[in-house]
Amino acid sequence: MKFRNLIALVITAAFALIILQAFTITPAAGEITLNEFGKADINNRTAQLYLNKSVNTDNKKVIYQESKNLESGSANIVTSVVANYRSFDTLGEITVLFLAAAGIGVVLNLENSKKKKFAADDSSLILNTGIKLLFPLLLLAGTYIFVYGHLSPGGGFQGGAVIATAFLLKMLSDNKFEIKEISITLVESTAGISFVGLGLYGLVTRGSFLENFMATGTVGQLFSAGIIPLIYIAIAFKVGAELTNIVKNLIEA
């Protein structure tokens, strides 16, 4: 073992020990405590408000397919947090993703002296045929995931990632397959603008950015939850386009 590795090990171990001893501290009265595993006290957490959909109103009971016009109409509570209660965070998050994609574009397209171009072989028949079959199915699955994001597990990020995977597979299998840069940019910017546009419309009509300005409908139905599905569709297109762009850049470099 080299000297540096030893030092790294010692430092890491010291760090870990110091962090782990925090679990043994018995908190004084009134201090926030760390729950034991599996015993999280949901009733005393912010989560309770989200579960009851009662941050601003005082709705208590939410019943599947019955409750109407709730504060946030999404059956998937995580979605209601990501795309409604904390959708401003999500806007920041897709900005980070956009910045990373832009950064990769810049880094990989820098002038370099010894550019090697790989002449890739044609991929095998099995991969080719399988992906021809899978490609529409993957697109469909991705679409399902983000359209039903407010009803079932999933959402814009996951759906977008599945769609990007479909394009990745397509690029792997088919050497001649090429997406135009301009179409990716177009999809991405349209999606981004519509996200911000939805937020601004809420700002104008309801007085705060990204406020839900549509009727939330009945919990559990496809056409419900106000702007959450719209935001998720915008996110899905944006994430899909960005990830596809990243993959495209990495493959082409």
Binding site: T12, F15, I18
Partner: peptide
Amino acid sequence: LYSVLLFVILAAVGW
């Protein structure tokens, strides 16, 4: 390594 070391020292001091 230096930045991690700084964190370790800060954590140790805090402890």
